[in-house]
Amino acid sequence: MTRQFITVEIADQWLGVDIMAVREIRAWSPATPLPNTPEHIRGVVNLRGVVLPVLDLSGRLGWGTTSTTERHAIVVVEIGSQLQGIIVDGVNDIVSVSPDDLHSVPDTGTTKSPTLLEGLAHVDGRLVLVLALDQLGLNDTEAWKEAA
């Protein structure tokens, strides 16, 4: 069955976010930092009365901390039963990927478990890294331990 992803950009890399998890895309607004959290947790923002944790996706992926500007966006996703925001450089297109076009992440010998990627997809001449949202967010206590 074909799946749809919203492609987002971080440092010239395209990443795919399962469209079924995306709740909204909002303009950048500064997050209020929280004490004693991993560096990739930028803090929280108020989303119509709901306190929303915001993750620096670049930092979570090990690509360095994002220096945010007004051009950045927060993609609000539902991971498990919790809404979370992820900071991205930009939002691109909605793409459809057939199961045959979604490939496993190759073993590089350095991948920590759990992996943050579900797979790789080749879309319109680009390689899209498909995020494993359930491994990315706050609900994954092992990921918190690794990041701390």
Rank of each mutant, 00 (worst) to 15 (best):
R3Q: 13
T2N: 11
P30M: 05
V88R: 02
S104W: 03
Q13W: 06
V44H: 11
V95H: 04
T2L: 02
N92L: 12
M1Y: 05
R48H: 14
D134I: 07
A31H: 00
A147F: 02
T115G: 15
L136V: 10
V50K: 14
G43E: 08
V50M: 12
P53S: 14
V76R: 00
V91D: 11
V128T: 05
N139F: 00
A73V: 13
Q135T: 13
W28N: 05
S98P: 01
D12I: 04
G119F: 07
D124R: 15
S29D: 10
H72I: 04
D89V: 03
H122F: 12
G43F: 02
G109P: 05
L120G: 08
S104T: 13
K145I: 12
P30V: 06
I94S: 00
W28V: 01
V17S: 00
T68N: 07
G137N: 03
S58K: 10
T115S: 15
G109N: 09
S104Y: 08
L116E: 09
D56R: 04
T2S: 09
S104C: 04
G49T: 05
G59C: 08
P35V: 08
P99L: 03
V97K: 03
T141K: 14
L131A: 11
T68D: 10
I6T: 10
V105Y: 13
S81K: 12
D56Q: 04
V45R: 12
Q13K: 12
P33T: 09
L34A: 14
V50L: 13
P53A: 10
D89S: 04
H72V: 01
V22G: 00
Q13H: 14
V105C: 12
G109T: 11
V95A: 08
D100P: 02
